[in-house]
Design a protein around this nucleic acid. Structure first.
Lengths: 118, 118
DNA sequence: TCCTTAGTTCAAAGGTTATTGAACAATTGG
DNA sequence: CCAATTGTTCAATAACCTTTGAACTAAGGA
């Protein structure tokens, strides 16, 4: 069961920029990029805002084509749509992520993830 | 006489993205990039929206640190703050401009500029 | 000086966005 | 089946954004 996503060529540049122009969503994208390849579920982002609000922001990211959301059980697995974004807007995601990487004013994600100890 | 601009390190990434996430403003930036080096005055953009509204959008771009506005006589000369943006967010402006260059859904600027005939 | 040109400011209207809490749905473990 | 876990939907609110027209300022030319 998959939620509605735009196709790659339905992704609009102004819309992507507008959606990334929110500190909470930019923090989500930065974190997704830092764990790229690993699908994360929503709860990972609960220190950014309330559950309700998170649902709203993740829907915005999905509807803009920035993320892909897959429903698995009661979870939603979130991934960056890097391939589609790189094809549509070469270099954009990388430069945004690089710039966001240095940005101490963005809210931080993490601090209570379940890490595997060695 | 210069209008208030943020310093380079006051430029905020989310703010820049949000400001570029408006089709009118993105069209302005795309056009500025296509005429880079040439300071343009506001009237250049009058086919995008009303004079009042243009004043608002250009103020947004200036306040976000995307453009520099210099008052000369009754004119305002607008330039892209490429150096500052490139220093703060390497590659971002280029990828945005490249992506916008292909975007037929953005409003077009120009059509009545005074071109020098050969 | 008077008029025109270039652009700003203001207040108002209308739209969209972000955030909240309460209620809901769906899956999973006991 | 029951309860807990995960996340969504809804309605409400407050804040912000965009757009407008009318009124304004400031510089330049006749």
């Amino acid at each position: 069961m998959t939620l509605p996503h735009p196709t790659a060529d339905q992704i609009s540049l102004p819309n992507v920029l507008a959606v990334l122009g929110d500190p909470t969503r930019l923090a989500i994208v930065r974190y997704l990029a830092s764990k790229e390849g690993v699908p994360l579920n929503c709860s990972r982002f609960l220190d950014l805002c309330s559950k309700t609000n998170l649902s709203y922001h993740l829907a915005k990211l999905r509807e803009a084509g920035v993320t892909r959301t897959e429903a698995v059980g009661t979870s939603r697995l979130i991934t960056l749509r890097r391939d589609d974004l790189d094809r549509r807007f070469p270099g954009l995601l990388d430069s945004v992520i690089a710039a966001a990487g240095d940005d101490a004013s963005l809210p931080a994600v993490g601090g209570h993830e379940i890490e595997i100890s060695a």
